[in-house]
């Protein structure tokens, strides 16, 4: 389940009003979330949740659900 907070960060960064982000949603399915923009989304998530990811942790993410799990792990949820 994607939290409202994470959803908001991603949608704001992508300039999207709304998009149905599910656990299994993958980046290319979301308008504007291409490999070049990926860097901005990761930075925005790190800043907003005040966490730091390791490169390895980011590279193995397959979908938004994995990103949520990583955020939860880092914020101790």
């Amino acid at each position: 389940m994607i939290s409202q907070e994470l959803k908001k960060v991603i949608l704001t960064e992508l300039n999207l009003d709304d998009f149905d982000l599910q656990d299994e949603t993958m980046a290319p399915e979301v308008p504007g979330w291409d490999s070049l923009n990926h860097i901005n989304i990761i930075l925005a998530v790190e800043k907003s949740f005040n966490v730091k990811f390791k490169s390895y942790e980011v590279l193995r993410l397959k979908n938004v659900g994995d990103l949520q799990k990583l955020v939860d792990l880092k914020t101790g949820k």
Partner: peptide
């Protein structure tokens, strides 16, 4: 190239923002 070269460099240099790209 994107998955095994571009992304690792991009993610590890993300603090440089657009220059990381």
């Amino acid at each position: 190239l994107k998955d095994y070269l571009f992304k690792p460099i991009q993610i590890s240099s993300r603090r440089l923002k657009i220059f990381g790209n």
